[in-house]
Structure formats: C-alpha cells, structure tokens
Simulated scan of single mutants.
Amino acid sequence: MNNETKILQDSHGRNHTYLRISLTERCNLRCTYCMPEAGIPLSPKSHLMTYEEVFDIAKIFVKHGVTKIRLTGGEPLVRKDFSVILEKLALLPVELSITSNAVIIDRFIDVLKTNDVKNINVSLDSLNRDKFTHITRRNQFDKVYNNILLLIKKGFHVKLNAVLMKGFNDDEIINFINFTKDLPISVRFIEFMPFDGNKWDMSKMVSYADIMKYVNDSFLENNVIKLQDAPNDTSKNYKIKDYKGSFAIISSVTNPFCDSCNRLRLTANGQLKNCLFSSTESDLLTTLRGGKPIEQVIKKAVFAKLKVRGGMDTLNKLQKPHLHSKNRSMITIGG
C-alpha cells in the first residue's frame, strides 16, 4: 500500500485498523455519565445513516485497512434494523463485536452467533441493584445480570465496562474483581472522562493509582498477576491467581494510551471523530449522499489527529470546561 492509499495513517505514524460505528443515539437506559440529565436533542431520522450507508462507509474503511468493527450506540440493539446491519457487515473480512447494556441482548443470541460475533462488552457500573437503578435511572438490574450470565453460558467472550466515580461505586472495586473468581469474564475499570453534560470534575475520578491501591490492600502481592497487554490495547490487564477471569484498567485520563491508538469513531449521523476527546468532526454522510468519494475526507480527518486526547495533553487542560464541553455527550459519540 503506497502513501497515496494510506488514508488511515495520521501525522504521528499511527495506523487505524479499528472502527467503532454508532448505530443510534437512542438508549433504553439513562446513565448519568453518558446522557445529560435533561436528555439530548436527537438527530432527525433523515440525518442518520441507513443500513445501506453504514455498509457502504464500512466497506471503504475495510478496503483501506480496517480489520475490526465494533457496533455501539446509544444502545445498538434498539435499532430496528440491527440484525440487517450485522448481517451486511458480516460479509466483510473483518472481526465484528458489539458494546451493549445487555437489557435486551437475550433476543439477539442467535443472530450474534450466526454472524460470528464472539466478543461482547457490557456496560455495568454497579453490582448493587439500588445503585444500578440510581445511575441508569431504570430498574433493569436483574435483566442485565441474568443476561450477562446467559452470554457466558452461550460461549461469548464477555467484558464488563464499569465507569468508576468516587463516593459512588469505588467501594465496589473488590466486589467486581471477586466477580471474576468463578466466571471467565473480564471486568474493566474505566476512569470517569469529561463529556458534554456529564458534570465531570477531577474530584469524581478514581485513578489507575487509586484502583491499584484498593487491589494491593486486598490481595497478597504475589497473587496479583500482570497479564500481557495486546498490541494497541487500551487497558492494563491483571488477574488474581486461580481466578477464572481477569480485570483491567482503562486510564484514559491519568495514563493515556494515545501513542498506540488505532481507533476511529463513526457517529450515527455519519460524522467521523478521529479521537474520543476531539471536539472536531468530519462529515462523511453528506459527502456520500452527494455522490462524491469520501476517501479524501477520511484522509484529511485522520491525518489531523492530535497526538494526545484531542489536544488535552495535560491534566490541567482536562480541568478547563471550555476545552471539553465543545465535545458531544457520550451517548451521541458511541461507547
């Protein structure tokens, strides 16, 4: 592949092989860190990608080197044509995975299996029923918990994503790790990140160092095993000796993994975000609908990717609301 065709390489030499596609801005939960309390103005249906457009855009990314696609939302499973989209994407030579809140995922077991989806990330921020209801503003804990067990039983590789917030669920860190004792599951602790409307401030964040202090205070040092992280991994992976599962820490704020980032995000309304933290977007959908090639739009967007966290390269910058409040709320970016 010559330089003219390397449209997925940025100015720092990073190659982007992983595309996260948001299928919808809608969700059947209302998580406080993801959706502003007042809700969000949803894009009109005519502004969202159709399943044909999702497929057409995905084909171009795969042609130029994307090898992995993750479907996200909102909640991707609430989209009525989710199965159609999955079946279309399964025609491409790419690894497919999804991120879901698992409320209705039991209805999709067969279509996920048929289309060779093996890896499923489930967002779950508390193992306590009351806390779950508080943070999601919905009473669906039992359904989610039982569906997690169902996914494991059906042979899926399941990762639990838990966003930690000081004074709310940081006291559950060890409970989450103990959840991996008898289940082949990975729990991933995610540092609370700033997005529009989620009232982020540094005092709410539970850092990588904080998490490891909990771990080291609760387990003998020689029982905490550091695992080999995969190339381009966002997480630092560990397990407790003799536990079936593992745990990991995604430290986007205090210890970012930007140097090895290979991820791009496509929003449900067809905007390309070259970084989760970036406040700028590139409109692929309008270009596509205008009958014009989107490769040059992609190339320009990817090449302009900043080295660290959308330009917020210090903790001091992260604490300046005007720098991150121009970003979308998390629900309209895609997890």
Score class of each variant (00 low, 15 high):
Lys154Ile: 08
Ile109Cys: 09
Ile148Pro: 01
Asn169Trp: 12
Asp125Ala: 00
Asn178Cys: 10
Ile174Tyr: 11
Asn121Lys: 00
Asp170Ile: 02
Arg138Trp: 11
Val163Ala: 00
His157Leu: 14
Leu183Ile: 14
Ser186His: 04
Phe156Ile: 08
Lys143Leu: 13
Ala162Tyr: 01
Lys159Met: 11
Val163Ser: 01
Phe179Val: 05
Val163Lys: 03
Lys154Asp: 10
Leu127Asp: 12
Asn139Trp: 06
Val158Tyr: 06
Ile173Arg: 00
Lys118Cys: 10
Gln140Ser: 11
Thr114Ser: 14
Leu183Asn: 12
Met165Lys: 03
Asn175Gln: 15
Lys131Arg: 15
Lys153Pro: 02
Lys154Glu: 15
Gly167Leu: 05
Lys131Tyr: 13
Ile174Trp: 06
Glu172Phe: 01
Asn115Ser: 06
Lys166Ser: 12
Asp130Asn: 13
Lys118His: 11
Phe132Tyr: 15
Ile148Val: 14
Leu124Tyr: 07
Phe141Glu: 10
Lys166Gln: 11
Leu127Ala: 07
Asn115Arg: 11
Tyr145Ala: 00
Phe141Cys: 08
Ser186Lys: 08
Asn147Ile: 04
Lys131Asp: 13
Lys143Asn: 11
Lys153Val: 04
Ile174Val: 15
Leu151Thr: 05
Leu151Lys: 03
Leu151Trp: 05
Asn128His: 08
Asn175Ile: 00
Lys154Met: 13
Val158Arg: 05
Val187Arg: 04
Asp125Ile: 00
Val117Met: 02
Asn147Leu: 02
Leu151Tyr: 03
Thr180Cys: 13
Leu112Val: 08
Leu151Arg: 04
Ser126His: 02
Ile109Tyr: 10
Val163Met: 00
Leu112Gly: 05
Val117Phe: 02
Asp110His: 10
Tyr145His: 11
Phe179Asp: 07
Asn119Glu: 10
Ile177Pro: 14
Leu160His: 04
Ile120Gln: 01
Lys166Glu: 10
His134Phe: 15
His134Arg: 13
Phe176Val: 07
Phe168Leu: 12
Lys159Val: 09
Ile174Leu: 12
Phe156Gly: 06
Phe132Ser: 05
Ile174Pro: 03
Asn175Val: 02
Val117Trp: 01
